[in-house]
Design a protein around this nucleic acid. Sequence first.
DNA 1: TATCAATATGCGAAAAAAAACATATCGCAA
DNA 2: TTGCGATATGTTTTTTTTCGCATATTGATA
Lengths: 125, 125
Amino acid sequence: MAGSKGSKYYDIFLKFKVWLENTKGQGILGDGKFELLEMIDKHGSLSAAADKMGVSYRKAWGNVKEAEEKLGFLLVEKHRGGAQGGNSVLTPEGKRLVEAYKELLVEFDNAIHLITKKFFNKLNT
Amino acid sequence: MAGSKGSKYYDIFLKFKVWLENTKGQGILGDGKFELLEMIDKHGSLSAAADKMGVSYRKAWGNVKEAEEKLGFLLVEKHRGGAQGGNSVLTPEGKRLVEAYKELLVEFDNAIHLITKKFFNKLNT
DNA sequence: TATCAATATGCGAAAAAAAACATATCGCAA
DNA sequence: TTGCGATATGTTTTTTTTCGCATATTGATA
């Protein structure tokens, strides 16, 4: 819930976003891309991950590539050809990033919760 | 500084954004608009605020109007005509929001600082 | 060795967002 | 009563992003 009932701020909410940036100020990875990485990890391929997320393979592939270029190292180990056509798995670095990001989100949520409370308290003073 | 020296994460940073949203999921006010409100407060007019921020008056005006429409109440009291052509001052609600937001940012920065540290520690483990 | 599913990319269209341009209105003060 | 500077908007242009379509490559397996 946002502000207290009856307040003019009743249906207003605080939202936030966290992402990784490089020194050039370019965004690298945010919520969407992290979710994509998780899906790749879970399903074993970019195309399956894209499907599950309801985005085109073209877009998902482009996202991964862009992030990797900006980072300067690979997040996903891609294989093509073979009976299944190919597959993709996270690199150790990719896994690590995803893990760290997940924990980060939890802590962020906790912090936000407190801060939000204070914010609306102040507004309703 | 981001990761520890020599780390693969050396030149990567965590960034964040906070903003207000209404129940329809529409963004209302973020960093830029809050800064605009501060400038209006400081300079006494929308046009001066726009100048100082290096944006067009058209854009600044549109931003304020849009935010007010989504909030359902006024943030700025505008007057036109007169010797000076007109002027603008924050409404009490506008002032209140700006104040609360400023405090919010400080707390956010503190929280982020801690969380960022943990994040990179984990990556470099 | 032909097939098949997944990776890999280029490119043009379409949609969305931002910036620029053009006016109109308003009201005090000279 | 005219000029000036700020508010108020509609319209158009430009820029940026996103989407969709087409096409090539790869390699285990039947």
